[in-house]
């Protein structure tokens, strides 16, 4: 058995009759250099030669390097772009003074406050451009007058019917919100007057009450005794 295996491997040792039979049968299909036409190389075919001066790069390597270089270039370009977009242009005044500010004709820079623009003569760049070059803008802002704002006082409407015990508890727990009301001069004046009137009224009421109860006399006697 081992000899037959050896025959299959190297044609040595004990010959295997079956393998020999197969070999003989298949011999007709064997490549025969004599019967086959010799290889004829066409005259035009020239083998590809490498240039000795060039480094031996394969196409894959060259492609990879090109790809890496392109990626690096793109990255640098993005970085530069981001840098110049993020950093604000602080040289605005310089550029303005250098007469390089380009403003459209119907451009209204500050429509809210309506500043008074002391416009300098605008030289026109080209006829069809539609843009003018402003030398300088001077804005003189008018002092804004603050309009008096009426503060609304909010008085809570309490419906006594709807208030139950539970809600009372809740109300007790809740701290009253201090409303800071800003009063105008007129309101302040009125408030003071009202308070004065109330104090006078209360003192008058007190005198009347004392008189009715006879306390006034006692007090007078006491004062005279001193």
């Amino acid at each position: 058995m081992k000899g037959k295996e050896e025959y299959l491997w190297s044609k040595t040792g004990t010959a295997d009759s079956e393998i020999e039979r197969l070999e003989n049968a298949l011999q007709v299909l064997r490549y025969d250099a004599a019967s086959n036409a010799p290889l004829v190389l066409p005259a035009k075919v020239v083998p590809f030669r490498k240039e000795s001066s060039l480094p031996s790069f394969s196409t894959h390597r060259v492609f990879r390097r090109a790809l890496a270089f392109a990626a690096c270039a793109a990255f640098v370009a993005v970085l530069l772009g981001v840098r110049y977009q993020i950093i604000p242009n602080d040289n605005y005044s310089e550029i303005g003074s250098a007469e390089a500010l380009v403003v459209p004709k119907n451009y209204a820079p500050f429509p809210v406050d309506e500043p008074v623009i002391n416009e300098v003569k605008k030289p026109v760049i080209g006829k069809s451009s539609g843009f003018t070059v402003a030398k300088k803008f001077e804005y003189t802002k008018q002092p804004s007058v603050r309009k008096p704002v009426k503060a609304r006082r909010v008085f809570p409407v309490i419906d006594s019917k709807k208030i139950d015990i539970q809600s009372k508890k809740i109300v007790r727990n809740v701290e009253p919100v201090k409303q800071i009301v800003k009063l105008t001069k007129e309101e302040k004046y009125a408030y003071e007057r009202l308070m004065l009137a109330l104090s006078i009224t209360s003192s008058k009421f007190k005198l009347v009450k004392d008189k009715v109860e006879g306390k006034e006399e006692k007090r007078a006697v006491r004062e005279n005794g001193r």
């Binding site: 491997w9 190297s10 070999e23 298949l26 011999q27 064997r30």
Partner: peptide, 8 residues
């Protein structure tokens, strides 16, 4: 078997 080459 066809080309008659050895294993080696």
């Amino acid at each position: 078997l066809v080309e008659g080459m050895t294993g080696q």
